[in-house]
Write a protein that binds this DNA or RNA. Structure first.
Lengths: 214, 214
DNA sequence: ACGGAAGCGGAGGATGTGCATCCACTTCGT
DNA sequence: ACGAAGTGGATGCACATCCTCCGCTTCCGT
């Protein structure tokens, strides 16, 4: 990747970093569909420069998300280390939810048909067995409802991040409420309710969230 | 609206109906962003004809969704009639979830900034007091968790319908599973779990759902 | 301190998509 | 059978984004 063939000139390297930084931020905030022009502008650079470094839009996306995808895999492995089955499951589920909720671009890449299809599929295959294992352990310990399926997990992540996307500008932590409700729904049984980790929306936040579309 | 000024010629009226039918179907299936050309084709009619009947895209949308919005209001009123507070709440929540899950266009209209903004806001205002009332009743009866807020409900609908959108082509009833988990998370406390109303996805369904984007 | 290689910017060509118009032709109703 | 009402779809227009191209600038080794 960072081919040692010949190091970039210092100004070029500086610009490359700026581009990655700007793109990273824009992708996270506004999704992978931001235009190359916008990225160039945000990086304080001409479009030409962006294209000099990254042959096309997809190359840029791939360069940026490779690391994030890697992180997901690591995360899964890490969760297996945790002793308590329910805690392990929770940690894993929460961590992924957070990543997707806070990074609109990541969420899109994980759902997209073509953007890095192979790479994403690969990551999913790496993760699946771990997820199954975490799931089974938690069920065996009686903490998790028996009828939950592996594929329900990513769908719950989709659900949570859809809400996160809607409320991000107005109440960045709101999605954690939904997550809390979900998690209470996952327990095999429970006496009370887990306290909500975030406050509800007020009328104004709600109205803005429901109508601030692009 | 259906101005009695002069009745349409029979062929014209037939075409008007076809357009509404086609648009209704396309909006529900593929969202409000389908092109006028697509609608015309689906209706077996030229674009010109569509524009003759509906001055522009928005007029068509409005004509179609007015009735649906009305139905939501009716639904809310109906729920108040149900004796048992928890049942009433459930019925209301489920009915709206179903509408949004099964009608991609409706979901978009409810979330959009401009498409019939006023009309939607109006409906929301009609519904809010009813929702609050249903919520309070269910809480008072001890069936519903105390920390739930009115504005959490629409957000849960957003969450469910995001998943419905993803899985609709592959497993149209899947979203009911997520809803079930949510509802179990809403209970104040519970001994076991509510049986899932739909089967989980299998590997193939999951893969297709996660990658069939346009 | 200078010459050439590497890098830069951003106007503009290419492409795509969708809305809405227009008008020669067809169909309906009396 | 004749005029009014209706029709279709090619066409114009507007906009958005990708990516190329090339005259100019900056860096770096000698």
């Amino acid at each position: 990747m960072t081919s040692p063939a010949r190091p970039l000139r210092v100004d070029a390297e500086r610009n490359r970093r700026r581009i990655l930084a700007a793109a990273g931020e824009l992708f996270a905030e506004r999704g992978v569909d931001v235009s190359m022009d916008d990225i160039a502008t945000a990086a304080g650079v001409g479009v030409g420069t962006v294209y000099r470094r990254f042959p096309d839009r997809d190359a840029l996306i791939e360069a940026l998300f490779e690391e994030k995808l890697q992180r997901i895999a690591t995360l899964a492995a890490g969760a297996l280390e945790i002793e308590d089955p329910w805690d392990a499951f929770l940690a894993f589920f929460r961590a992924i939810a957070r990543m997707q909720a806070e990074d609109r671009g990541l969420k899109q890449v994980l759902l997209s048909a073509d953007r890095g299809r192979d790479r994403v599929a690969e990551v999913r295959n790496t993760i699946r067995p771990v997820a199954v294992r975490l799931l089974e352990r938690a069920k065996a310990a009686g903490a998790l409802r028996e009828d939950l399926d592996t594929f329900d997990l990513p769908m719950m992540h989709v659900a949570v991040s859809a809400v996160a996307e809607l409320t991000r500008d107005v109440a960045p932590a709101y999605w954690e409420r939904l997550l809390a409700i979900f998690l209470d729904g996952l327990a095999g049984s429970r006496a009370g309710t887990t306290p909500m980790p975030a406050p509800p929306l007020d009328l104004e936040q709600f109205t803005t969230a429901m109508s601030r579309r692009r």
